[in-house]
Design a protein around this nucleic acid. Structure first.
Length: 265
DNA sequence: TCAGTTGTTTATAT
DNA sequence: AATATAAACAACTG
């Protein structure tokens, strides 16, 4: 559940339950989902801690307590979820659970099939950056003028730039394809060749795409979204019915419309 | 059997 | 310094 809308959906959900919850037990089922810390330390440092309001930056979920701070990165398949006291966890949903933090409000589970990333623990907000690395402004927060200033003069392709977390934080493979398609720009178009008018159009497209996806807590697969055509091949462009093209761009499988997204536009 | 997958890091090259 | 590419990480699906 990896791009910004998914993580924001998780943050929203956890903010209903987590603030004030005090840790009563920590159960590590697979230490492979713990990063730079052992199961014993993980447990010891969290026991008795009280959660505060969950935060998010880009794809990072930040769970502060009155003690250490949990930093969660889902990779491709991570999914934190909360089972409140008095409700029963759907047993089919506990597949790939890697650890469970029990609190007096309920249980925080972390499910992650592939374990490409996981959870870190830091003592202070000042240490967050040493784990996340340099992060650009959040894609949902960045202003139009900062967006333009940030992309100004970059020589890389548009999709590679949108996906670079050091430039803008939160966009992944699916959203970047979606934004390029909606804006009518070829994903490999060099950023420095785009004028301010085009950059503004891309910015507005990014905002609309994000706001719509965040509302649903995920990237939709309804027919008006390019995302709905990802898994079918060949697939028609949802806008003009032209057969979509796919190839590797910016190191990822990319999908675009040869009619709506001419390489020169 | 093998390619492909919502992500990032590392090594290597340009 | 930026940018691009491939491989590695891990586990499962079609």
């Amino acid at each position: 559940m990896p791009e910004l809308p998914d993580v924001e959906g998780q943050r929203r959900k956890l903010s209903d339950y987590l603030p004030g919850a005090q840790v009563t037990a920590v159960d590590v089922l697979d230490a492979g989902a713990l990063r730079e810390i052992g199961a014993d330390d993980f447990r010891r440092r969290l026991l008795g801690a009280r959660f505060r309001q969950p935060r998010r930056h880009g794809k990072w979920l930040i769970l502060p307590t009155d003690g250490p701070i949990l930093l969660i990165h889902n990779g491709m398949t991570g999914r934190p979820y909360f089972v409140s006291s008095g409700t029963v966890a759907d047993p089919s949903g506990t597949k790939s659970d890697r650890w469970v933090i029990s609190t007096d409000h309920g249980e925080l589970h972390y499910s992650d099939l592939r374990k490409l990333r996981g959870v870190w623990l830091v003592d202070d907000i000042a240490d967050v950056n040493s784990v996340t690395g340099q992060q650009g402004l959040d894609a949902l927060d960045i202003s139009s003028s900062m967006f333009r200033a940030t992309l100004q003069g970059r020589r890389g392709g548009l999709k590679a730039t949108l996906m670079d977390q050091r430039v803008i934080a939160g966009l992944g493979n699916m959203l970047s394809d979606e934004i390029c398609w909606r804006a009518g720009v070829h994903p490999a178009r060099i950023v420095s060749a785009l004028d301010d008018k085009k950059l503004n159009a891309i910015y507005r497209t990014m905002r609309r795409t994000l706001e719509s996806a965040v509302k649903q807590g995920r990237i939709p697969r309804t027919r008006t979204w390019l995302n709905s055509a990802r898994q079918r091949d060949p697939a028609p462009c949802p806008r003009c019915q032209t057969t979509l093209r796919r190839s590797s761009i910016a190191g990822r499988t990319s999908i675009w419309c040869p009619r709506c997204q001419l390489p020169s536009l």
